[in-house]
Each structure stands twice: as structure tokens, then as C-alpha cells.
Design a binder for these strands. Structure first.
Lengths: 200, 200
DNA sequence: ATAATAAGTGAACGAGAGGTCACTTAAGTT
DNA sequence: AACTTAAGTGACCTCTCGTTCACTTATTAT
């Protein structure tokens, strides 16, 4: 309970900021959740704002590692069913992983106040997923699994509805199962609409 | 500068809450923006929370009036071009009307804290638009403008990407023009994909 | 005109915020 | 074992918050 305190503070801060927002979080509670008294935190960070900035650094770095490099792109699916199940695997991860959920929430809450949060929010909510699926859908076009079209447009048309339902899960967790079912239904709808015709 | 003070307080509160959030807003600033001293506000509302609740009442009532009744549904378009231009009219209104923008922002910021904000957020961001376009797309199917399919699924597939770009405008206003162009491009893409084939 | 009520003022209050500091305790180095 | 540094404590500081209250000024009704 010594050297990793800095990391533990950041983890607790993510949780608290994501529940109550930056302004709604106070240092005493944050410290108490770690078993410290509030002045103890100032041995690790010089201010509340410094905690916020370090947390954002960590979120940005994590995003870069996780989604920034080409090597982390999932393989191009081999069939419509494969496409749906890959989607569902990604969706389940992103909805169930508490760390990711809290990251989305905190970005949602602070996007108008902090420029870096704003930029990261756009990546998380819009451009990141779209870029990823632009690559995937382009690969599927090459394999002849879906009709040739603008892959960026298709990726946007595919990911934005999914993203909307992920937001719904963050907002109303009790609707998670419905939302997941709806995502799967949408995924199948999409692959039917854009898939090549099976002239039986 | 007397009887309408209550309304003016709510208007100023919407602006301030949407910029800084509920916690980030303080009564002194709020009063000052109306040319009052802070204690003056307490002649009209008994607490900060009462202002928040009254504002939510107003937002809920406004939403009900504006989008809740069937009579406010736009007419079913007569052509693909009509569909696109109706969409663009609605989008421009919703992006340019400061009142609506601020409402979305405040719902975004307070959705995890307040249950009524949460419910209204879901209507604003997801179900409201979807229901509206379910009706419109069903009408267009009847007119033979688009192929027959599940209108609710199509409405969701159509409105969620538009909603995502509206959120982008709220977050990064400098990208508004790009976003609007992208919405129009998406709208045309959609009507092409789902439109009935023109066998020339 | 006058009485009654509503709207607005300014000083004050208690609570809780973020932050500092002298101090104690634990860990690591030589 | 002695010394140095890091980690954690508790009392205290200042500031700002939301709120109250006795008071003055407008407004309205009769």
C-alpha cells in the first residue's frame, strides 16, 4: 500500500469522476475511498486538476495503445455470420468492461469543459469505431462478402447506430439486454442490406 | 423587469447549466447574469435544486408539446429529394436553435445524476427521432418510394447516424459545416440503398 | 392616497470545498 | 545502526458555496 498509490488514486478518480463528474467529486471522499486522509493525496498530486490531467493522460495513452495502432485491428470476417459475431464480441467487451464504461461516462460529462476530453470523446464515440470498420468493410468488399461501395460511408452507417445503443446502456443499464439484442438485430439487418445477393 | 423574472431565471439557468453543468453553476453568477444580487433569486425559487426541477419540468413540457403529439409529424415526403430536404430542414433547426442545443447539452451533462434527465435524454437522443421516422418511412413505403422493410429498423438505421453528427456539432461547433454536409451525404446514401430500384 | 403584497438588497451564517504545513511513521540506502 | 527520503496524518487556513433574514423599494388593489 505504498508505491502504487498514485495508480490507485487515478483508478478511484476515474470511478468517482464518472459517477459524479469533476465538479461533483471532492478530495476528501476520493481519499477516503482509498483509506487515506485527504492531505495524503497531495503527496502524490499537487492539485485536483493535476489528478484530472493525469487521468486524461492515462486515458489518451490507453486509447492509443488499444485502438491507435493498425496491429490491433481485428481480422476481416469470412462470412456474414462471422461479421455479426465479431461485432457482438466487441460490443460485449465495450459494454461490460467497467473501465471502458467509466471512461465513456467521464468523457461524456467533461466534453464541453476540457478540450482534450472533447477530442478523445469524438474518437471514442465517432471516428475511432468508424475508422476501424472502414478497414473491416473494405476487406469484406475485397472478399466479395458485401457489395462494393464507399467503405467509410458504410462504416459510419454501421457504427453510429451501435454507438447510440452503447450510450443507451451507459445511461440505462437495466436496458442492456434489450440493447444488445437490438444491436445484433441491426447487425444482421445491415449485412442483409449490404451483402451481395445470393441468387439461389 | 418584474413578473417575467421567473422565466428569465429559467432561461439563464438553462444557458449556465448547459455550459458548466449543475454542480459547476453557482447562484451568484446566475443572478448576476440577470442583473440581480444572489439573494434575489430566492424570491422566485426556494433553492438551486428547485430551479433545476422547474427547468426540467419546462424541458419535458416543451418536448411533449413539440414532438409528443401526432399532429406535429411532418408530412410524408413525395420523392427522395423531398426526403433529403426535409431531413436537412429538421437538422438545421435542431443544430442552429440555441435553445435546443442547450437542452441537449444539459441532458448530456446531467443524464447520470437525475432520473428525469436520463429519461428525457433517451427520448431526445434516440427514441423520439426514431419514432418520428418510423412513421415517415412507413408512409414512404406505402407510397412505393422505398422498398418494404421493417420501418422501425430503417428509422433507427437512419436517425442514429444523424444523431451522432448532431452530437458532434454540440461538442465541436467548428465542425458544424462538415457535419451537415456529411448528414446530407448520408441521407442521399440511405435513400439510394433503400429506395426502390429505377429500372431505366 | 393608502394599505398590502411582491420584488430586490446587502450583510451574515454555517458548511464544505481545495489546499498548506509541521509533524510522525515507514522504507530504503550505505 | 544511523541517516535520508517518501508516505501518511491531523489541525488549520482561506475561499466560495447555498441559504437566511431584516430591510428597502416597486407594484398593485381598494
Amino acid at each position: 500500500m505504498a508505491k502504487d498509490t498514485k495508480e490507485r488514486i487515478l483508478t478511484a478518480a476515474l470511478e468517482m469522476f464518472s459517477h459524479k463528474g469533476y465538479e461533483g467529486t471532492n478530495i476528501r471522499e476520493l481519499s477516503a475511498s482509498l483509506g487515506l486522509v485527504k492531505s495524503g493525496i497531495y503527496k502524490h498530486f499537487e492539485s485536483k486538476e493535476a489528478i484530472w490531467n493525469a487521468l486524461l493522460d492515462r486515458m489518451i495513452a490507453y486509447y492509443g495503445e488499444r485502438f491507435g495502432s493498425a496491429e490491433h485491428l481485428p481480422p476481416v470476417p469470412d462470412s456474414p455470420e462471422d461479421f455479426v459475431s465479431m461485432t457482438m464480441r466487441m460490443v460485449n467487451l465495450t459494454i461490460r468492461d467497467e473501465q471502458i464504461v467509466m471512461t465513456r461516462k467521464v468523457l461524456t460529462l467533461e466534453q464541453y469543459r476540457d478540450e482534450r476530453a472533447r477530442d478523445l470523446a469524438t474518437k471514442h464515440f465517432l471516428t475511432g469505431l468508424t475508422e476501424m470498420f472502414t478497414h473491416i468493410l473494405a476487406g469484406m468488399m475485397d472478399k466479395g462478402l458485401i457489395r462494393r461501395d464507399d467503405p467509410a460511408m458504410l462504416a459510419f452507417a454501421y457504427t453510429a447506430p451501435i454507438s447510440a445503443l452503447i450510450h443507451l446502456c451507459d445511461r440505462e443499464p437495466e436496458r442492456t439486454e434489450d440493447a444488445i439484442a437490438k444491436i445484433e438485430a441491426f447487425s444482421r439487418h445491415f449485412i442483409t442490406v449490404y451483402g451481395v445477393k445470393h441468387d439461389v
